[in-house]
Design a protein around this nucleic acid. Sequence first.
DNA 1: ACCTGAACACCGTTCAAGT
DNA 2: ACCTGAACACCGTTCAAGT
Lengths: 202, 202
Amino acid sequence: MPTSKRPYHFGDLRGALLAEGESLLTEVGPAEISLREIARRIGVSHNAPYRHFATKEALLAAIAAAGFDTLAARLEKPASDPEAFGRAYVEFALERPAVFRLMFSGLLDRSAHPDLELAADRSLRSAQHFVRGTYGTDEGAMMAAWAFVHGVAMLLLDGQVPAALRGGRSNVELASAILGAMANTLPSPPARTKPGSRTARR
Amino acid sequence: MPTSKRPYHFGDLRGALLAEGESLLTEVGPAEISLREIARRIGVSHNAPYRHFATKEALLAAIAAAGFDTLAARLEKPASDPEAFGRAYVEFALERPAVFRLMFSGLLDRSAHPDLELAADRSLRSAQHFVRGTYGTDEGAMMAAWAFVHGVAMLLLDGQVPAALRGGRSNVELASAILGAMANTLPSPPARTKPGSRTARR
DNA sequence: ACCTGAACACCGTTCAAGT
DNA sequence: ACCTGAACACCGTTCAAGT
């Protein structure tokens, strides 16, 4: 029966650090997060984390990288529809605000953390893949769509929505409304007809 | 001649703290910034800042609040033109990236710093004022425009622009191009004509 | 391999004085 | 009023051991 005792010093310390790190990040924010406190909560010495992460920033970078990975996975769902893309993006931001903020906070030096850079690029490629399905090869349109959706997520997270506009709606409801408006204003799928890409989809 | 000696302990310590704080923030980022280092660089004791700011976060909040004030001032220029609005916004972000990031990082608890909250609201009102001039009373359009412009600034700051799209252009050039695209896609001043909005622009 | 306690150089903040 | 040095409880990181 090897279950009642700690398996071997610790089950999956790396995983525990990532999980407890995210929850502490959510509690106290990136300014106050402390490696020693994470270790304390898990029940290991303040030094144990260094077996898995070279620095505190490396742990944060790993959390952010995991965030990019799950974001990318969600964006990859074959939803070649701007509104669904936006909804998935904003939903992630609202579900895991602390991680989303960390991912785009500029707190982490990407060039110092290749895994993070790689994961961030993967998210970008997901966005490109999405846009290729709906806007053809117009990468400018992709940037526009991404910027818009990213901005919506940020403003919602920051509570930068005037009460008059909000009208008692929740963040999720607001996001739907704004993204719906996007569908009307951003170029619809068969946007630029250079020669004959007129598919009249839907 | 009262100029060669330090005027009276210090000229304008508060102002010096704000200035040196911003430049240290630019140098080392919000994770590494230290009140003691700021004091050291100015040449006062590590304790002097507490005469002007209750905590380190209060100093950062004051820097962010000043940032919102100058952003608001720039947006207030009577440019009721989406592209000019966007350009002013993005230019601010690119000129003072550290402050812009701080303003929207979620690092500061707004409810704990009324001055910051007030300044942020003032920026919002500037945006509303702008949009009233160009989109009438459609606050949804304002949110859309703001979100878009905010997202563009963030992605440029984060270097999240694929090289293929960038094509060797500087951030300022890129911003112009993207914002120009916005002018084509966001509803132009006389926005919604349900049926026949086919302007065949270009 | 994985974990530990002791130690080092920092940090934010407080305190009791000094002018 | 404004500034100071000493002190406190933290922190990230390193080191020399322990199993």
